[in-house]
Each structure stands twice: as structure tokens, then as C-alpha cells.
């Protein structure tokens, strides 16, 4: 288990990370979200021992990370980097060896990972000759091939198309199922929601939200209502307790001041019988993110 207690880091007079606490258990995925400059990469760099915290402790399985075997760690930096003139096979072998894998094991694993990520290219191709997407897949394989027990991914989905992002998601979930503790950052709230068990939202180095994603969303109440009925936009806007009405073709998206308003709208909408859609949900992560960031900025 990765445990961070009261982690603080300042650069000159700027507080990059302020009193951050978090835990990632084995077989668990923690998503770290926040605007640019929120402190996500700084947190990762402190976990990886690239930066020394001003205060606070970082432990892995109750031991200081400084004493942890590097072979247990996998890291994907935000800005990707590979040796452009090195062949794909040599590159993967080099990074795998640096993470303690034996040659025979590497030879066995490389084709499997190339297949899993559907890399279009040969092991004898130079990295620079691959497409950008395939280069990114090679980078991911280099990060995951040694099946790290602690996996740190900085913006892993950036630059990936939806198909490749799904491949990466499957890879991350595979490692989670194998018992890895995974911590990653992303701007893509959709992916964060789909694969994270827990979430931490950072703003200007401070934790503004943390916990289980479902619990976080539920804590904001079911104030979003998606409705398809014979009620008009005007009728809905005039309904007491409806703050915002948005129309998406036949569907209306309402923002309610109170979840109980939903019951009243349901009663009115079903007065004349069957309606194709009535869905009352908590705000999305993106809305919560905007809400929180906006509130703090104010």
C-alpha cells in the first residue's frame, strides 16, 4: 500500500503541494485530477524520489520509498521519451532489464504485449519510424512489461485515440487485477470515472475532494435530470426549483436546486401516460470539477 501523509512542497515562495494525504491499496486505482499546475506531477515526482518534500512522509508497504526496490515501480512521464534511433525490441529489452527482468522472460513477454496493444510495427523497426500512436504504445509497454507493483501514470490517455485509450484502459485494469497499486492523473473525466476506484482532486496544491467516486458524486445529490416527455422547454423552465434547462433534440437536461423536485416533475410528466426517458443522476465528475475549481477561484 502506498501511503502519503501531510506531503508539502514549495518552490521558492510558491506552494506546489500543500498537506496532501492519500492511500492507494494493492489492486486499487486512484485517479488524480486537477488543472494544469495543480500539483499532480509534483506529487508523482516526490513519490518517485525525484523531488524531496519539504515535509511529510511517503511509504510503500510501510517502508520509506527511498529503500524500496526500483524494480517494483513503473512510471509513465507526462512528456514521453524513447531513444528514436533504437530498435523497438532493443528498447523494450533495455528498459525491462533495467527493471530487473531476465532476458528469457523478456523475449517471452514482448510479443504478448505487442499483441495486447496491437502495435503496428516490427521489433526490428527503429522507434522513429513508427507512427506517434505506436510510439506511445511502445512507451506504455516499456512502463508495464515488468508488471510493477506500484504503477504511476502521468496523463496516460493524452494523445491516444478512443480505440487505443480503451487498449490502455484494459492494460491498466489487467495490472490492477494482478494486484498492482495504480495512481494516475488525467484531464479526461470520462476515463477517470470509468476506471478509478478512488479519486483525489487537487487545486493549487490543495486537496479539494477525495474518496470513492460514487460516494463523491452522490454527496452532491441527484440534481441532474434527463427527461423526454411532452412537457415543453417553457413549462420546465417555469417549474419551481429548476435552475437550468438545456435541450438536446428531444431530450431536456435540467439542473435542479433540490433532488426532491425530481419527484414533482416526474408526477407532472407522467400525468398523460408513458414517457421514453426519466433519469435523475448526481452531477458528472466534470461538473463537480468545474464547480469545485470555480468555487475555490471565487
Amino acid at each position: 500500500m502506498l501511503t502519503i501523509n501531510n506531503l508539502t512542497k514549495t518552490f521558492d515562495q510558491v506552494v506546489a503541494v500543500n498537506d496532501v494525504n492519500l492511500q492507494v491499496k494493492s489492486g486499487e486505482i486512484l485517479g488524480l485530477i486537477g488543472q494544469n499546475g495543480a500539483g499532480k506531477t509534483t506529487t508523482f515526482r516526490m513519490i518517485l524520489n525525484f523531488l524531496t518534500p519539504d515535509s511529510g512522509q511517503i511509504t510503500w508497504k510501510n517502508k520509506s520509498l527511498k529503500k524500496v526496490n526500483y524494480d517494483q515501480i513503473g512510471y509513465l512521464p507526462e512528456e514521453r521519451g524513447l531513444y528514436p534511433k533504437m530498435k523497438v525490441g532493443e528498447q523494450l529489452t533495455y528498459f525491462a532489464k533495467l527493471h530487473g527482468m531476465k532476458t528469457a522472460e523478456i523475449k517471452q513477454q514482448i510479443p504478448k504485449w505487442m499483441e495486447r496493444f496491437q502495435v503496428k510495427g516490427k521489433l526490428t523497426d527503429k522507434v522513429k519510424d513508427l507512427s506517434k500512436g505506436n510510439q506511445q504504445k511502445i512507451q506504455l509497454i516499456a512502463t508495464l512489461i515488468h508488471m510493477p507493483k506500484l504503477l504511476i501514470l502521468d496523463e496516460p490517455f493524452s494523445g491516444l485515440d478512443p480505440v487505443n485509450a480503451d487498449l490502455l484502459r484494459a492494460g491498466i485494469l489487467m495490472l490492477r487485477n494482478a494486484g498492482s497499486a495504480i495512481i494516475y492523473s488525467s484531464h479526461n473525466m470520462d476515463y477517470v470515472e470509468k476506471i478509478s476506484d478512488n479519486l483525489i482532486m487537487l487545486h493549487n496544491g490543495n486537496v479539494v475532494l477525495s474518496g470513492d467516486i460514487t460516494d463523491i458524486r452522490e454527496s452532491f445529490g441527484r440534481t441532474k435530470l434527463f427527461l423526454e416527455s411532452k412537457l415543453t422547454s417553457e413549462q420546465l423552465a417555469n417549474f419551481p426549483g429548476v435552475k437550468i434547462v438545456k435541450q438536446h433534440k428531444k431530450e431536456f437536461e435540467l439542473t435542479l436546486s433540490n433532488p426532491d423536485i425530481g419527484k414533482k416533475i416526474f408526477a407532472v410528466a407522467t400525468e398523460k401516460g408513458y414517457i421514453p426517458e426519466f433519469r435523475q443522476v448526481p452531477p458528472s465528475l466534470e461538473e463537480i470539477f468545474r464547480l469545485k475549481v470555480g468555487a475555490v477561484n471565487e
Binding site: 512510471y75 514521453r80 521519451g81 533495467l98 516499456a142
Partner: peptide, 15 residues
């Protein structure tokens, strides 16, 4: 080259 291309970050997670 290793520093500028950020390969160094990956290397320093292993050594």
C-alpha cells in the same frame, strides 16, 4: 538527449 527527451525520468525510476 536523455534529459531533453525525458528518457532520463524513466531511467531514474529504475536506477
Amino acid at each position: 538527449i536523455e534529459k531533453g527527451s525525458r528518457i532520463m525520468e524513466i531511467l531514474l525510476t529504475s536506477v
